[in-house]
Simulated assay, not measured.
Amino acid sequence: MKKGVLLVNLGSPESPEPKDVKKYLGEFLMDERVIDVPLWARTLIVKGIVLNTRPKASAAAYKKIWWEEGSPLIVLSEQLQDKVQENVDFPVALAMRYGSMSIKKGLQELVDKGVDEIFLVPLYPQFAMATTETILVLAEELRTEFFPNVTIDSLPAFYNNPEYIGVLSDSIARHLEGKTYEHLLFSYHGVPERHIRKRDITKSHCTIDGSCCATPSPAHEFCYRHQCLEVTRLVAEKLGFEDGTYSSSFQSRLGFDQWLLPYTDRTIERLGKEGVKSMAIVTPAFVSDCLETLEEIAMEGEEIFQEMGGQGYTTIPCLNTDAPWVNLLSKWINNWATSETVSA
C-alpha cells in the first residue's frame, strides 16, 4: 500500500469581501456539529438571522488581518504542509473542513498520486464536536462514497502528549523572554456547554461544576473542556508558574446559549479592572494563527485591556511553522508510517 498524509484545518473565506465571507459562514454554521440543533432551527438561525447580519462585520474583521498572500490561516497551513513534506518520503496534502480547499479535493489529490493508505491529521490539539469530530465524520463519509479502496487512520488528540507540551511550553517561554507581565491567560476557543455533555460517554460525569474535569474519568477522552484545562495545567507545571499568575478562558461565543466559562473578553476586562497593568495571552486551541487569534485576541483583546487601564499586552503567536513543531508533527507522521505510537 502507498501511504500519504492529509493535514486538515478549519478553513477560510476566499477573500475578505462580504459575499465570500457570507458563503463561508453559511457552510461553516450549517454544519450540524457546529450548531447542533434540528435542521429547521439551524436554518432559521443561520440563513434567517446570522447570514443577514454577520457577514459585513466579519468581513471587516478579516480585512484587518488579511495578508497580501491571502488568508493567514491558509498561508500558514500551506507553509506547514511544505515543511512537513520536506521531512517525509510520501505525499502530504492539505485540506480545509470548510471552503474551496475541501477534504474531498485533498483525498482525491492523494489518490491521484497512487495513495491508498491515508493518515488524516486534524490540526487541533483537543477533541471537539465542531473541529476534530466533524472532520473525521466527513472524511469517512467521503471515503465510503468516493474512495472505497482507501484506508484512513487518524492522529488522536495530542493535548497531553509530553512532546507537544514541551514544544508548546518552549514556545511560550521564548516569546515571554524579556517581557514584563503579571498574568498569563490561556484562551481557548469556546463551545456550548451542551457539546461537552453530548460527548460524555459516561452520560453522567460532565457536570461542568468546577470539579469534573479534575476528576479522572473515561469521559475525558472526548471532553474538550478537560483537555483545554489539562493543557494549561501541564504547561504551568512544565514552566513552574505560580498559582494565581495564570488562568484559562474561552473565546468566540455565538448566540444566547450557555458557553464554556469564563469568557475571554470578560476575563481581560476583569484583569484590567483589578489593577493588572501587564498581561500576556496564548491560544493553545489553535496551531496556526487565524482570525480568532490575530483580530479577536491580538486586536480586540488589547483594546479591552487598555480601556480597563491595562498597559502592557503581549500576544504569543501560535506554533505556526516553528521548527520544533514541524519536527514533532513530522515525527508523528513517520511513526505512523512505521506503525509506531504517534500520541500519548
Rank of each mutant, 00 (worst) to 15 (best):
V46S: 07
R42G: 06
L73P: 00
I74Q: 02
I65D: 00
V92F: 05
K56R: 14
V111N: 03
A95E: 10
P72I: 00
L94I: 10
P91H: 04
Q108C: 13
G106F: 03
Q81M: 02
L39V: 14
D82S: 14
V88H: 08
Q79T: 00
P55I: 08
E78D: 05
E109I: 08
V92E: 04
R97S: 03
L80N: 00
S102P: 00
A41H: 15
P38F: 08
P91L: 04
V88N: 09
G70I: 10
K104R: 15
D82C: 12
I103D: 03
R54M: 06
W40A: 12
I103T: 10
E109D: 13
V115T: 08
D89V: 08
P72M: 00
G114H: 03
I74M: 08
A57V: 11
L110V: 03
V111E: 06
L39G: 13
L76C: 05
L76I: 11
T53F: 15
D112T: 12
A60I: 09
G106L: 04
I74S: 06
G48F: 09
L73A: 05
W66Q: 04
W40L: 13
K83P: 02
K64G: 12
V75S: 05
K56L: 14
E86M: 10
V50L: 13
K104N: 15
L80Q: 01
K63M: 07
W40I: 13
W66E: 03
I103Y: 05
T43H: 13
L73Q: 02
K63E: 07
W40M: 13
K47V: 07
S77Y: 00
V92Q: 03
S100L: 15
F90A: 09
A57R: 12
V92S: 04
R42L: 07
L110Y: 01
M101K: 10
G114N: 03
M96G: 04
I65T: 02
I103Q: 07
I65C: 00
L80H: 00
E69L: 11
A93L: 10
N87F: 02
G99W: 00
L51K: 01
I49T: 14
E86P: 07
S100T: 15
V111H: 05
L107H: 02
Y98V: 02
Q79I: 02
Y98M: 03
V115F: 03
V115E: 04
L44G: 11
D82A: 14
L39Y: 15
V115Y: 06
L94Y: 07
A57H: 11
